[in-house]
C-alpha cells in the first residue's frame, strides 16, 4: 500500500483553479522530486498532503488512512508527515537544541533525557552537534535549514515534505543541505521534494513529477524523463533551467 495516495485532487482559490485533478502515488522509501514552473501548484499540492490547505475534490489517503479534508484535528496526520519550508521557519527565541526538543517533549511527552538525546542525535545527523546552544540568528542559512530538517526528523515522521528548501540559500550553502537530504534518502526516508535543483532530482530521485498548469504533466524515472522528455513543455522547462 502506498504511503501517500492522491487521486483527482482539485483545489481552487476563489475562481482560480490551482490543482485540476492531480494523481500522486508515493511508496514507502521512495524519493519523489516535483518540478515545474512557478505557480504550477507544487506548493499547494504539498500543503494539501499535510493539511495546511484543504482540497475541493478528489481522494487522499496517507498511510492507509483516508482524509476527508474536513477533520478538525490534524495532529495524527502531522505525526506521520514532517515538513521543511523554504524559509526555514525556525523558532527564533529558542536555541537549535530547543527547536528540536520542543515538539518531542510537549507533543510526544518524552522525558527530558530522551528528548535531549534525540536532539543530540538528530543534530549530529545534520552535522550540527556543536550548534546545540546557538540561536537561529547566529547560524548561516544552510545551518538553519539543517536545524529545521533535524527538528522535523526528531518527530520520526514516515515521510518528509520539502518545499524548495534550498531556494532561499546563497549558492555556496546549497550543497550542505542537499548532502543531508541525500543521506536521508540513502537511509530509506520517504521524501517528497519540490525542487529547482535538477541535478539533484535526477541523481537522487526515484521518481520525477513534472507539474504544469495544475496537473501532473509528465512523470516517471528521472534519468529517463530528463534524457527523453515526452512533452514539449517539459523539454522547454528543463532546457530553460539548465
Amino acid at each position: 500500500m502506498p504511503l501517500v495516495l492522491a487521486e483527482g485532487i482539485q483545489k481552487n482559490f476563489g475562481s482560480l483553479e490551482v490543482l485540476k485533478g492531480v494523481d500522486l502515488r508515493v511508496e514507502e522509501g521512495e524519493v519523489v522530486a516535483i518540478i515545474g514552473r512557478s505557480g504550477s501548484g507544487k506548493s499547494t499540492l504539498l500543503r494539501i498532503i499535510n493539511g495546511l490547505e484543504t482540497f475541493d475534490a478528489g481522494i487522499l489517503s496517507i498511510d492507509g488512512e483516508r482524509r476527508t479534508g474536513l477533520e478538525k484535528d490534524l495532529r495524527p496526520l502531522r505525526l506521520k508527515v514532517g515538513m521543511v519550508f523554504q524559509q526555514f521557519n525556525l523558532f527564533p527565541h529558542l536555541t537549535a537544541g530547543e527547536n528540536v526538543m520542543l515538539a518531542p517533549r510537549e507533543v510526544k511527552k518524552l522525558s527530558q533525557r530522551a528528548v535531549r538525546e534525540l536532539a543530540e542525535e538528530t543534530l549530529s545527523k545534520v552535522g550540527l552537534a556543536d550548534k546545540f546552544k546557538a540561536y537561529p540568528d547566529q547560524l548561516s542559512g544552510g545551518q538553519q535549514q539543517r536545524v529545521a530538517i533535524a527538528r522535523a526528523l526528531a518527530m520520526r515522521p514516515k515521510a518528509l515534505l520539502c518545499d524548495e528548501i534550498t531556494s532561499a540559500l546563497d549558492p555556496e550553502l546549497v550543497g550542505e543541505v542537499l548532502d543531508v537530504v541525500q543521506r536521508l534518502a540513502a537511509e530509506g526516508m520517504t521524501l517528497i521534494m519540490v525542487t529547482h535543483e535538477m541535478r539533484f532530482a535526477r541523481n537522487v530521485g526515484n521518481k520525477l513529477i513534472f507539474m504544469h498548469q495544475g496537473k501532473v504533466h509528465e512523470e516517471g524515472d528521472p534519468r529517463e524523463l530528463f534524457a527523453h522528455p515526452k512533452t514539449p513543455e517539459l523539454a522547454s522547462f528543463t532546457s530553460a533551467i539548465q
Binding site: 495532529r75 514532517g82 515538539a103 507533543v107
Partner: peptide
Amino acid sequence: EASDCLAM
C-alpha cells in the same frame, strides 16, 4: 505553520 507541522 511550523508549529502545526510539528503536531502541536
